[in-house]
Each structure stands twice: as C-alpha cells, then as structure tokens.
Design a protein around this nucleic acid. Sequence first.
DNA 1: CGTCACCTTGACGAGTCTCAAGTTGTGTGG
DNA 2: CCACACAACTTGAGACTCGTCAAGGTGACG
Lengths: 232, 232
Amino acid sequence: MTFPDLFERFAAQVLPPKTSDDAHQRLQAIARYSSARAGDAPFKENGKDQIVFVASGSSKLVAHASLGRQQVVAFHFAGDLVSVPGSSAHAYSLCALEDCELIYFPSAEFLQLAQHETGMVAEVLDRALRALARCREKTVTLGRKTAQEKLASFLVTMSERIGAEFAQGVDLDLPMSRQDIGDSLGLTIETVSRQFSDLRAQGLLETPSRSRIRLLDMKALEAKAGHIRAAA
Amino acid sequence: MTFPDLFERFAAQVLPPKTSDDAHQRLQAIARYSSARAGDAPFKENGKDQIVFVASGSSKLVAHASLGRQQVVAFHFAGDLVSVPGSSAHAYSLCALEDCELIYFPSAEFLQLAQHETGMVAEVLDRALRALARCREKTVTLGRKTAQEKLASFLVTMSERIGAEFAQGVDLDLPMSRQDIGDSLGLTIETVSRQFSDLRAQGLLETPSRSRIRLLDMKALEAKAGHIRAAA
DNA sequence: CGTCACCTTGACGAGTCTCAAGTTGTGTGG
DNA sequence: CCACACAACTTGAGACTCGTCAAGGTGACG
C-alpha cells in the first residue's frame, strides 16, 4: 500500500471528521512511513519520543533492562496508536510481530499540531487513557498472579482483542511466539509452555497448531485469571 | 482549607491561564470535595470512572484481585491528577496514605467540559502520558527484576519524586508502609524488610526511623535497579 | 511508661528458573 | 509432493529465589 493510502487510513481512524485540510497537510508533512518484516524494529528513535500508528499487522513494545533482560510492555494491532518513549530508565523499541505498515511522528510536533484541531487531542487522550488502563491491569497480573493465572489472564485479554467466537468458545490466532508471551508475563518460555500443557490437560483449550489456540471454556479461564468480578 | 481554596489550587495547576470564567464555573459545578484521614478510601466510585486531583497529602491506587490479593498500581502526591477506573477486570480504589484533600470529577463530564477549553485537554493528555510512562517502567520492574532490584528501583523512583538532596545522598520521608511497598512491587512485607536489611548491610542506605530513609549511594542504587542506562 | 501496630529475623517449603535433552511444526529445496 | 533442516516448542531434573508460618524486636502513641 502506498504512503498516501496509509495516511488516509490513519486520518480516518484518528482525526476528527471535521479536520481542516491545512492540519491534514501539516501532519502529513511530519509523518514518516515504515514497512517492516516480522521481527524487524521498523525505526530508530534517535532519543525523541515517537507516536506510531499501526496501519496493518501487529507489533510489540519492548523494554530492555540490564543483563539482556526484556519485558514486552504491550502488544498492538492494526488501528492502534502507540506512544514510544525515546529515552527513559529503560530503553524501548517497537518491533514487528507480523509484517507491518507503520506511520510515525515525532511526539512533540504531533501533539503541538494536534492542539490546534478541536477533538484530535481528545481522541489521543482517550486512546492514552485506555492504554493506561491496560497497563494497570497488566501491573496486577505481573505483581500478584501465579504463572497459570498470568497465562489465563493473557488469553482472556487476547480473546477480547483479537478472538473470533465460534460454537461455545473462542478461536485465537496469536502472532507472537511463546518467548514473546513469556516476556510479556514475566515468565520463561519453559514455564509458559508448561502452563499451556497444564491448561490443555484440564480441557480448557486446544492447540491445533503453533499459533492457533482454541479456548474451550471462557468462564473457567476467567475464573483462573483471578479477575475480581469472576471470583467470590 | 475550604473547597473554593482547594479548587483554586486545582485551577492554578491544571487549567490553562486563559480559561474562561464560564468553564471555570462549570467545572466547579461538577467537582466534589473530600478530605480523608490516613488509611481512608475517600470516595465511592459508583461504577463510573473518576478524575481525581490530589490537592494535599498523598494517596495510593489499589487494584484488588481474587483471594484478597492487592496490587498498588501507583502512588500520588500533592498536585497529581489521577484517573480512577470505575469498573474493570479488577476493582480499583483510591486510598489516602497521609491525611489528604481531594477534588474529584466524574471522568466523562470532566473530559466533555475540557474539550471546549483550548489547552486543557492537552494538559490532561500530558499528565496521562507521563502516568503511562511510569506504569510501563513499573511493568518492567514487576516482570523482570529480583526482589533487591525491585526495591532499588522503587527507592530511585521515589527519590526523584519526593527526595530531598543533602551532602552526597538523598533523604526520603516515605508516607507508605512496608506493606504498601510490598503491594506495589509484588513482594511480601517480609521480603521487603529483608531487602532493606540487605541494602543497609551493604552501606547503601540508613533507616534512622520507620518512615525516614537516607540513600547514601545513588550511583550504586541505580546500578542495582537494573536500569539499562546504568548498566553495560 | 505501657501498649500496640509495625517491622525484623529465622526456618522451611512451594513455585519458578536454569540447564539439558527430546519432539514437533514449518518452510525450503530437490 | 516429499524429504530434509532448522527453529520453535515441550518435557524433565535439580537449584534457587521468594513466600509462608512463626517468633521476637522496636518505634510511636496515648
């Protein structure tokens, strides 16, 4: 897909309908385009915060700590807007899970321009608050749950975002590897694998192929996830 | 302090200088005031998201999971703006650490009014993005660090927010208990205590009283925190 | 000065990580 | 279309960190 087409996709999803042509053009002027193959880090941050729109595909935001340890901070799918920190106590990088098309802006200029368009800042704020809410939920999962509860939480969350319902369960096609899941949940790949086997043995899911997962009993999974609403 | 005085404090810190009297009054009309003693949960959420301004004192945002487990999602100090979720996979509540004065608004109405004031949404967005950045940093800490690294990270972060520099160290007066620190780091109170003792034995800090902590070697603490910038 | 909550320390066990070996998908080239 | 090769995943055994349970100490308050 060409850059103008992708920018239109961004405009349709993020900009308010009544955005002026002028603002449209100014934004397009600071926008950069990147297409990445699975596994690539599609752009260099050069120390400045970036705002990234995932036009197609899926990506992960990875934080790096000392000793090569990685933490996946968030996953993103087509239509998501991501704020990528340029510098912080930990180094961040955005990385493609599947082949991916991205539009990205220097954060400062983007927010500056946004201010002059009624409704645009509100849209970005709305997305930021939802990202904050997800990050907080993740905090609970990382801080206070067992390996099995972590995996159950992950599967429930993913089924809400990219699940396809069928008969009496949910079909998931996960673009991320076991390693990515582990890096997201603060677990090793081995522990993730063991918990998958455990849930499979309990009849809660099937794994017909590497990336495909069938969740057979959402009620039970939600209970295992330790969500307060599902518990006593 | 009276409600009008507190609201002015909110206005001075959050509203743009050129905010109209009209908007000022509309905001004041939906604002609620609460003063809480240490340990209290100052308001009921009634299922709707709230925006809370901490006018004085300090507070914690607590998420509740099943089996009575608690996770402290964030700490707040005077001048902070907090978004408190009304309903989610986990139940949230805001709780006073010290005696506290709060102004709170129903989130939906607050954001609705904010849209009409140029600059106000931008201010709220800026704060939301900083909250998101802190939450992400916390994610790394919870997911990929040992107990000692977690405590070191906590102390470094707190010294940046409420530390008072002296000679060649930083003086901290922590308003939260060891239990709160544990709930924030995903550790038990015993482990927190042991790590304090350990860091004390290494000569990195002194604890002259329960709440007061002297950080004697910030460089070493930052290295222990596992921040990428301090490491190789 | 006594009381109580908060904090510290110790011993032990459970859960997860590490290291190692084996298995199964997936994609490629014949 | 099949066979091969490699990466991704799974499974097992042992080590280690942190949680649990229990007892003891200490600072802050009336």
